[in-house]
């Protein structure tokens, strides 16, 4: 009996709070859903998103941003249902865990009338999202190769350390190879180092034992690059104009570039702030006088000593 009473009480409270929510309906509610960060880049993304939420809510008192992260695709689908039924969101910013399993859940959110912004990973059906914000993987590969071409001449040798075998890695790699083709630069070999420092260290050690003449390394990622640099220093082959190009925009790497590090002279950005950018654009939809829609593809900016300062966030975990 007690239990039933408690349930009844809960229901009453629930109804009251729901009607309370209805009164406060003038507030524009934006739900932001993304995977729980499990690696450094995602932790940086989380940090930027939290900072953006704070800044936007301070700027616009009538904007309410709800950040939800989920550990797996089905949890993210449930989180979307809650955002619609409990929070009654007006707009959704989502970085989907995986495209396939989240396409239908996002479609359901759209049916509730919410404005949809999809980040980084596209859905498997076109036309659901109002805004698409993403980094540019092929461009990251192409820009890296372009830099290699400015530093190396025909006949020079490079090795490549790739990420985890996924579409992201393949897009970056293919674009790099397409750009390097015809330059006369030899790609000695490419192995997967799984965007991981330890694997970067071990793969690079083996490349160094195997190839006596390496002029540059494309590590594709800043974590791999850290392992590569440790291996180069161990083998004493970090001199002679040797250089490593990573990618992503880790704060330690950017700090090194600011300080004039020659071993990692540049970095290619895969912006960890992309979720924050998407939130800005989504808020602009409600606040801007201009129309906001379409695809926002963020550039794979080359970070050099000159512009490094504007990409350096010492408080971010990444």
């Amino acid at each position: 009996m007690k239990f039933v009473k408690a349930l009844g009480a809960l229901a009453v409270i629930g109804a009251m709070s729901l009607s309370g929510a209805a009164y406060a309906q003038e507030k524009i509610k934006i739900g932001v859903s993304y995977p729980t960060p499990t690696h450094a880049w995602a932790a940086g993304m989380n940090w930027h998103a939290e900072a953006a939420a704070e800044r936007l809510e301070a700027l616009y008192p009538d904007i309410d941003i709800i950040l939800v992260n989920s550990p797996d695709p089905s949890a993210q689908a449930s989180a979307l249902e809650d955002l619609v039924s409990v929070n009654q969101i007006d707009a959704l910013v989502i970085l989907p865990f995986e495209s396939e399993p989240l396409t239908d859940p996002v479609l359901n959110v759209k049916k509730s009338g919410a404005f949809i912004t999809v980040v980084d990973r596209g859905l498997s059906q076109p036309g659901i999202e109002d805004i698409y914000v993403a980094g540019n993987n092929p461009e990251l590969g192409r820009v890296s190769a372009e830099y290699m071409k400015t530093r190396l001449k025909s006949g020079d040798n490079i090795v490549i350390l790739r990420g985890i075998p996924t579409v992201i890695d393949t897009e970056r790699f293919d674009a790099f190879m397409a750009e390097i083709e015809g330059s006369g630069i030899n790609v000695l070999d490419h192995k997967h180092a799984n965007w991981n420092r330890d694997d970067g260290f071990e793969v690079m050690q083996d490349f160094l034992s195997r190839f006596p003449d390496i002029d540059a390394v494309w590590a594709q990622d800043d974590d791999i690059a850290i392992g590569v640099v440790a291996a180069l220093k161990q083998a004493g082959r970090d001199g002679d104009g040797m250089f490593v190009v990573g990618g992503a925009g880790m704060k330690e790497t950017i700090k090194g570039i600011m300080d004039g590090e020659t071993l990692i002279p540049i970095d290619v950005l895969y912006p960890p702030a992309m979720l924050a950018t998407a939130m800005d654009v989504t808020v602009a939809k409600f606040k801007s006088n201009g129309p906001v829609a379409g695809r926002y593809i963020l550039g794979a900016t080359v970070i050099t000593k000159e512009n490094a300062e504007s990409f350096y966030f010492p408080d971010s975990p990444f």
Binding site: T38, A40, A43, G44, N46, R197, D223, E252, P317, F318
Partner: peptide, 11 residues
């Protein structure tokens, strides 16, 4: 370890 590192890397 993920928690201690705030999702990132402890150096």
């Amino acid at each position: 370890v993920t928690y201690f590192a705030d999702g990132g890397t402890l150096s």
